[in-house]
Amino acid sequence: MKPRRWLLALSALMGAGAILLTMNLGYACACKRKTTGYFQQIGLPPAATTNNVRPGIAQSLTGGRGDPQAGRAVIVNRKKGNCLACHRIGLLSDAPYHGDVGPSLDGVARRYTEAQLRQLIVDARAYFPNTPMPAFYAKEGMHRVLDKFKGKTILTAQEVEDVIAFLLQLN
């Protein structure tokens, strides 16, 4: 009797799994969705595709190359880049809770040049004027910044270069 019951439970579970797989909508599979948000979005343009016309920032902010390993740490750190709050990155799936406020960053090195990625991290408003993405290396035009962060950029020049070095691996 006992193993039978166990089988029954298992089969019910399998049924549940099948349903979850086929039900490609709503909360259950939210993590798999490419678009941002399940409800109607207003006001923001769709995520960008490649735009070779945009010049970007060609010069490294430090004069040197960044370190992708250090960049990975900046991206994951909630007090630094905190990029996963808004973006999914397949390579970093071991880090929990990737948000979907912004598009997935998988393959981002195919969509943007290094100079464009630098512009996006320094201040994405150059490409997306109304973006929610913080300007990680902008010092001016901020309003009512907490004393602790006043006059400081979110990332240092080195950290920006490190993040770019990591993103360049996502191709």
């Binding site: 948000g37 006001g43 809770y97 406020v101 109304n130 309003h143 910044v145 907490l146």
Partner: peptide, 27 residues
């Protein structure tokens, strides 16, 4: 109005992006 070092307005999270996940929070 955008504000703070992260330079966001209330609208960025609660008008343009509601329904999205910010980490594990559903906006």
């Amino acid at each position: 109005k955008r504000r703070g070092q992260l330079n966001l307005s209330c609208a960025h999270c609660h008008e343009y992006k509601y329904g999205s996940r910010l980490r594990s929070d559903l906006l």
